[in-house]
Design a protein around this nucleic acid. Structure first.
Lengths: 180, 180
DNA sequence: ACCAATTTTCAGAAATTTCTGAAATTATAA
DNA sequence: TTATAATTTCAGAAATTTCTGAAAATTGGT
């Protein structure tokens, strides 16, 4: 490995974290390296920095592109592909969240939907009831997430800072409206 | 495998999903089975239903208990351990989220904190700046999550249904307050 | 069209994770 | 205390995932 020392520990850590975030160790390291490096990097530079094979880098970059987390940036006078993060840290985080939603939640929802369809008989069975509860919870979550996802980073940050304080604002709204 | 046919496809699916949710196939199947079954189940019943070894069930139950997703329920006249979901579907979902936060976010935040501490020199380097951005984003998220987590299911459901509509409510509050 | 540079692919090797089942441990009851 | 029932442990086997590197495919320039 030949990572700049000031980012080494984070790059290594993010690799270890990798599997928990939905990709493998080297993909995690590659992502961290690209995000923390100001200059666009080509595949050979990445392979050298992380001490992994050229083939592995190629596969990893394909993976990161399928997540829309990196993009290529042409460098004048060089025909190699150079890679950059595909957006700000905020945008990357949102991108990870929606990609994970797509991979972790959507398939389950789709199984539940068809399961709840093909079983008119057992409408009232305990298991049917529980599957409906899970289904409704996932739908609620997805609706919320899609909605939230459209907001500007600024508004979203405000909302996050507010947290459960939103409850108080809702109360206040009611009080003000009934007064008028 | 010897799963009741009306839940088989979901149990199998949740097993396949397992790794994406932070546990392995059999742990995922065990969890789905326990949640969808009305009666408390003992380890032998689980092993038989899923067609896996007794030892594997023991390890899986330990894992599910470490996530606080299942608990034992003593059955009168039987000294085996019987297992039930540790709460409602809603509570289980919240539990999964906070456990994943603990495993996926907290370690990264802690690495970032110490990284940002031990480098007064490079305060202005690009990588330092990016690490701070990531750090601040994670802190914001965690603060929000902790806050949200305290809310009652009822209020939280309302909030989720509202989605980005909260923005409008905030605007309305401002307008009402300045009018008065 | 040809050549050289670059990227991708993929079969097999290496590493990691999961699973089994028999032995060890722990708990309960007589 | 002893016998029996139940659970846990863990070494090695099996399954799965990740990685390498050489060959194949693609790209771009002349």
């Amino acid at each position: 490995m030949n990572i700049p020392p000031d980012i080494e520990s984070f790059v290594v850590h993010f690799g270890e974290m990798g599997s928990r975030w939905g990709f493998n160790r080297t993909v995690g390291q590659m992502f961290a390296l690209i995000v923390l490096t100001e200059e666009a990097l080509n595949a050979d530079q990445i392979a050298d920095a992380l001490g992994i094979s050229r083939g592995n880098v190629s596969m990893g970059l394909k993976e990161l592109q399928s997540w829309r987390l990196v993009r290529t940036q042409p460098q004048p006078g060089d025909r190699k592909d150079y890679f950059r993060p595909n957006g700000t840290v905020w945008e990357l985080a949102m991108q990870v969240l929606s990609e994970r939603r797509k991979r972790e939640v959507d398939p389950t929802l789709s199984v539940l939907r068809s399961e709840l369809m093909n079983s008119q008989d057992e409408q009232n069975s305990y298991s049917h009831q529980k599957m409906r509860e899970i289904h409704d919870l996932l739908e609620l979550f997805i609706g919320w997430f899609d909605d939230i996802h459209k907001m500007s980073p600024e508004n979203l940050k405000t909302l996050l800072k507010l947290g459960s304080g939103v409850g108080k604002v809702l109360d206040m709204k009611d009080r003000l409206l009934t007064k008028n």
